[in-house]
Amino acid sequence: MLKKVKRHSLKKHIEKNLTERDFSKRNEPLKYLGFVVDEAFFDDFEMLYEFGKELGLQRKDVKLFTFAETRRKIPSLRQNQITNKEFTWRGEIHNQNAQEFLDFPFDVLIGYYKGKHEFLGAMVAQSKAKFKIGFNGADERLFDLLLIVDLQKPEAFKSEVKKYLKILKKID
C-alpha cells in the first residue's frame, strides 16, 4: 500500500516540476556535465568521467549521482548515491547530497538508465539542469533529447551524444 502511495506521490512531484521548469538557458554551451545512473544497470563510472574529458571538461566539472535499490551492508565511501528508502511516501527526497546535485545548474544532464524509472525520473524532473538527455523508452516529458542507442555499448553512446552536442552547438 505504501509503495503505491509513494509511486503516486512521485508522479505528482514529476508533474509539478515539469510545469515549473525554466527553459530560458537551454542553449548554453557545455561547461558542467551531470549523470544520473542506475547502478543495477551500469557501474563503470570511470568511463563517464573519461567521456567528460573527451568533451573537453575537467574531472571536477563532471558529476554523477547513482541510484541503488537498497544500500549494501558493506561500508561505502560513495556519497553520491541514493536509494528508494530516501524518497518519502510523499515523493520528497531526503538526501542532502542528492539535493545539492539536483540544485546545481548543469549545462547538460544525462539520464543513464533504460526505460522509465520512477525514482531517477523524479530526480531528472527536479534537476535544475538546463538541457537533459535521455534514452530509449524514458519518459519523453523529462528530456529535451531522447537518443536510441544501446547503453551497453559505450562507444555508440559516446558518439551519439557527441554528435548531437555538436549539432546543438554545445561543444566544438
Rank of each mutant, 00 (worst) to 15 (best):
R141S: 10
N80C: 01
G121M: 00
V149Q: 12
Q96S: 13
S127Q: 02
F143R: 05
F143K: 05
I82L: 05
G115C: 02
P105H: 04
N95C: 12
N84L: 11
E92M: 14
F131Q: 06
N97R: 09
P154R: 14
K163H: 15
F119W: 05
N95L: 04
E118I: 00
P105R: 06
Q99H: 11
D103L: 08
V108N: 05
F157L: 14
D144S: 04
Q79P: 00
L142F: 02
A129R: 04
F87P: 04
D139N: 14
I133T: 08
I148M: 12
F87L: 10
K158D: 09
F143W: 06
A122G: 08
F106Y: 12
I93Q: 06
K116I: 07
G121F: 01
L109M: 07
P105T: 05
I133D: 10
P154L: 14
N84Q: 15
E118H: 09
L145P: 09
I82C: 05
A129N: 04
N80W: 05
N136G: 05
F131D: 08
L147D: 09
A122R: 05
F104M: 10
P154I: 13
D139E: 14
K158H: 13
I110Q: 03
D150H: 11
V161K: 11
I148W: 11
H94Q: 14
Y112I: 02
K158Y: 15
A129K: 03
A122E: 06
I133K: 04
S127K: 02
D139L: 03
G134I: 07
H117E: 07
V161N: 11
Q126P: 02
D144G: 01
K116L: 03
S159A: 13
T88N: 06
A125Q: 01
L102Y: 02
W89E: 14
E92Q: 15
E100M: 04
K130F: 06
E118A: 10
K128Q: 12
L147M: 09
K130T: 04
P105L: 03
L120R: 00
A138K: 03
K128R: 13
L147H: 06
D103I: 01
A156V: 12
A129I: 00
W89M: 15
E160V: 10
Q126K: 13
K162N: 09
F135W: 01
D144P: 07
I110C: 03
K132N: 02
G91Y: 13
E155R: 13
F143H: 11
N136C: 08
E140A: 11
E86T: 10
P154G: 13
I133P: 07
I82R: 03
G121P: 01
F104P: 02
N84I: 05
F87T: 09
Q126E: 12
E92I: 11
G134R: 06
A125F: 06
I133L: 06
Q81C: 09
L145C: 10
E92R: 15
L145N: 06
I148A: 13
E92W: 11
L109G: 10
E155D: 14
G111K: 00
Q152S: 15
D144N: 14
V161A: 14
Q79S: 08
H94N: 13
Q79H: 07
Q96W: 10
